[in-house]
C-alpha cells in the first residue's frame, strides 16, 4: 500500500509532503488498518480549517481525502505523523 500525505498552510504557509510504502514494513497490517480507518468517512473535498491551522491531504492507493487541524480523528493524526516522519519526502 502506498500512502501519501501533503501538509500545507500552518503559520509558516509551507507545504510538506511524504510517501510511505508499506511493502517492506513488518507492521504493514497495522498501518493498513490505520490508513483504512483514517480515510473512512473523511471528506473528498478540500476543507477549510482554522486560521494558521494545517490542512492535510491523505492519499491511500490513489484515493484522496482532506482534513484540517484541530479536528483530525485519532487515526488521521497517527497516520499523518507516521507518514511525515517515516515516509520518503516528496518534492511539492
Amino acid at each position: 500500500m502506498r500512502i501519501q500525505v501533503s501538509r500545507s498552510g500552518g503559520f509558516a504557509g509551507r507545504t510538506t509532503a511524504a510517501e510511505l510504502d508499506t511493502r517492506a514494513r513488518i507492521d504493514a497490517p497495522h498501518v493498513h488498518a490505520l490508513a483504512r480507518e483514517a480515510v473512512a468517512g473523511a471528506s473528498r473535498n478540500r476543507v477549510y480549517g482554522v486560521p494558521d491551522g494545517y490542512h492535510y491531504a491523505i492519499t491511500v492507493d490513489g484515493r484522496t481525502v482532506h482534513c484540517a487541524d484541530p479536528s483530525l480523528t485519532e487515526s488521521q493524526r497517527e497516520l499523518v505523523s507516521l507518514v511525515l516522519h517515516q515516509g520518503v519526502q516528496l518534492q511539492d
Binding site: G10, F11, V50, D52, G53, P70
Partner: peptide, 12 residues
Amino acid sequence: YDNAFWDGQRMV
C-alpha cells in the same frame, strides 16, 4: 508540533 493557530476561541 511545528505550529501555532487560532481555533476560533483560543490560541494554541
